[in-house]
Design a protein around this nucleic acid. Structure first.
Length: 488
RNA sequence: CGGGGUGUAGCGCAGCCCGGUUAGCGCACCUGCUUUGGGAGCAGGGGGUCGUGUGUUCGAAUCACACCACCCCGACCA
């Protein structure tokens, strides 16, 4: 094995880093905390983006684009918002460089200092709500349903490829509504879109819930989220949808006249998912041999390898088969690289997560068969050439379903219900995973549990039935279980 | 921002303690031949500001000091 990836059992974190780099998803860059998204990683993001974009449009949203830079004063308009983001903002202070007098290169020209500093957006609520003030006058202007695909910068202390980078790509939806109820319905609708995307496309089961007040987005009245469970038993917040109340409308003075000629503040939501989803996908399905990508998002679904590459009969079969697969909408490549041998290619396609690999050798040509291997289980089947297209079509569906099934089973196996604090600690230390437990509802208890165990309340699950119980820490009454985990 | 680690060829490393030929090794790369059903073999070849700076010395990858960068672990966050 020329390209050994650290096995998960040795060091999960190393495995992830190795895999991201060696599979060709991303590279480190010259800038701290910023990564280069390589063609494979970007293709994956493009596929995610295409599906999400379609789902947003199906739910009535349109795309727009707002500036990268935000005047510093905007950020301070909403008190909680600035508190939440102030510590991680990149700030532009000058607009010009000049040659250094000592010839050592360029220096910032002190004469080019900006009157007001510009913040590189960590999120766009402020500049968007500043704009919405001009766009909204009447109830007829509502709802305003806009999404933006953009990059944002958060100067994080500690970064990890895809999971937390200083610059990341995302989408941010920003909507304005006439009523509280409508805005809440919008926030819930978009959470539902995210959850469906995660399960149907990423094959990643998620728990839907709401954040506790201390975990809420800065400036939100309610933060809805989807939480996923990674293979090492740690949780990952995969998407959030916020009900912002009238906070931003009040901060930016966005009002409208209703049907009764009454001036009202607008109700808001914002919601986003980011390139973090690529990391989530990797951590959900992949194994020690490389990426495992769900067919519905895989940039390449089928790779055909002929053995040997150069000889004609098998190459002819490969090209015919590829054409037939393409015709039914399956992405496929015929590997014509004569400098690599079959074994090398097998390993390489596995590393890159291609769901289905087909091998065609002289033996197959003679028997009129092809060998079809699936990435998720690594099983191989020899099937008649005439049945290959249907086999592949069915197999891609089967892999998609199997990944979701497997991931669901994992979440089920790693979700524990506990009654006492001792049990809580033991489960976290020995097994990790999601832990359902009673909590007295106070921020103090939440903070204390975090301090003692490093576990946070990931969410208050939306589908959890109310249940009387006693808080695992304080013994005070609790009306429902909440979802705890150690998280990324 | 605290703790730890690493900077030597595209990648991974040895050499450094104890200074001294032309700085090595594996992978990758180039050429040729033989191969080709799970990361091929042989032969030949190309590729280096030893992170940066200053100092010590006849002489520094090697010793000293300073700086920089990146990675990992923590606290903070999508």
């Amino acid at each position: 094995m020329a390209k050994a990836i650290t096995p998960r059992s040795v060091d999960y974190s190393e495995w992830y880093n190795d895999l991201v780099i060696r599979s060709g998803l991303a590279d480190y860059s010259a800038v701290r905390g910023c990564m280069i998204i390589k063609p494979l990683g970007y293709a994956l993001w493009e596929n995610m983006r295409a599906v999400l974009d379609r789902m947003f449009k199906e739910t009535g949203h349109v795309n727009a684009y707002f500036p990268l830079f935000i005047p510093k004063s905007f950020l301070s308009r909403e008190a909680q918002h600035v508190e939440g983001f102030a510590k991680e903002c990149a700030v532009v202070t000058h607009h010009r460089l000049k040659l250094a007098e000592d010839g050592s290169g360029v220096v910032v020209d002190p004469d080019a200092k900006l009157e007001e500093e510009l913040i590189v957006r960590p999120t766009s609520e402020t500049i968007i709500w500043h704009t919405y003030r001009d766009w909204i006058q009447s109830y007829r202007d509502l709802p305003l349903l806009i999404n933006q695909w953009a990059n944002v910068v958060r100067w994080e202390m500690r970064t990890r490829p895809f999971l937390r980078t200083a610059e990341f790509l995302w989408q941010e939806g920003h909507t304005a509504h006439a009523t509280r109820e409508e805005a809440i319905a919008e926030a819930e609708r978009m959470l539902d879109v995210y959850a469906r995307f995660a399960e149907e496309y990423m094959a990643m089961p998620v728990v839907r819930g709401v954040k506790t007040p201390s975990e809420r987005f800065a400036g939100a009245e309610e933060t809805y989220c989807i939480e996923a469970l990674m293979q090492d038993g740690k949780a990952l917040q995969a998407g959030t949808s916020h009900f912002l109340g009238q906070n931003f409308a009040k901060a930016f003075d966005v009002t409208f006249l209703d049907q009764h000629n009454q001036r009202q503040y607008v109700w808001a939501t914002s919601w986003g998912v980011s390139t973090r989803l690529v990391g989530a996908l990797v951590m959900t399905h992949s194994d020690d041999d490389g990426l495992v990508l769900p067919p519905r998002l895989a940039p390449l679904q089928v790779a055909i390898v002929t053995i040997p590459t150069v000889e004609e009969p098998q190459m002819t079969v490969a090209r015919e088969l590829a054409e037939q697969l393409q015709r039914i909408g399956i992405s496929v490549t015929v590997d014509t690289d004569e400098t690599k041998r079959a074994g090398f290619k097998f390993a390489e396609y596995e590393l890159r997560g291609v769901p289905v690999r087909i091998a065609i050798g002289k033996r197959d040509v003679e028997a009129d068969t092809v060998e079809i291997a699936r990435r998720d289980t690594k099983e191989k089947a020899t099937v008649p050439r005439a049945a290959a297209v249907e086999h592949v079509r069915g197999l891609l569906d089967e892999i998609q379903q199997n990944l979701l099934r497997r991931a669901r089973q994992f979440v089920a196996d790693n979700t524990h219900t506990v009654e006492t604090f001792e049990e809580f600690q033991r489960v976290l230390d020995e097994r990790g995973g999601f832990v359902l437990a009673h909590w007295d509802g106070t921020a103090e208890t939440e903070a204390r549990i975090k301090e003692l165990t490093k576990a946070t309340i990931r969410c208050i699950p939306l589908d959890g039935a109310p249940q009387e119980g006693r808080c695992i820490l304080t013994g005070k009454p609790s009306s429902r279980r909440v979802l705890f985990a150690r998280a990324y």
